[in-house]
Amino acid sequence: MREDLRIIADLVAPGARVLDLGCGHGELLAHLQRHKDVVGYGLDNGAEEISACIRAGVNVLEQDLDEGLTRFPDASFDTVVMANTLQAVHAPEHLLDEMLRVGRECIVTFPNFGHWTCRLQLATRGRMPVAKHLPYTWYATPNIHLCTFADFETLCRDRGLTITERFVCDRAYRHGRLINRFPNLFGTTAFYRLRRGNG
């Protein structure tokens, strides 16, 4: 399993009801079903991804995330996961609100646009960054709402979402002193656990 999904899996409580937004090939849900007795559902809108989920034997609903989560009642899930997808949706701020309406807790990961390699490319060459953790050219990227860790944390504060845990790491999912000291400069990926209100 992808290392980032393994990290997320460790954050999910056994027996939880899980909604996985942008579930891709269903790796996370398959793992959670097998090892944590989780009742999980994935949302995705790619035909290939849906097929992979069927083969993996996981629950998947074909749906575009930009349609929102209105189909789900309040507090119908324990944990809502969105791995590496926040930056690709049309209204990330609304979706975050929705995630914490339908779930008691959410886990969000995304790539850091504030990483030093991005800053350097923009500052020295005046060009849109293309980095190992953000490998797309500006005209052919699914990412339409890139942000830095600092931006995301500001948004959470503004919308009354509490960050209960944060884990920042590099592309190999390691974290050392440099990342701990300057996460927004040296981290490529962050894992956030969020709850509503000032918990």
Binding site: R17, Y41, I50, C53, I54, N59, F72, S76
Partner: peptide, 13 residues
């Protein structure tokens, strides 16, 4: 939606 609320296994396409 009713199947999800009833916690049944479902693939929806």
């Amino acid at each position: 939606d009713a199947l999800v609320a009833a916690r049944r296994d479902v693939v929806s396409v």
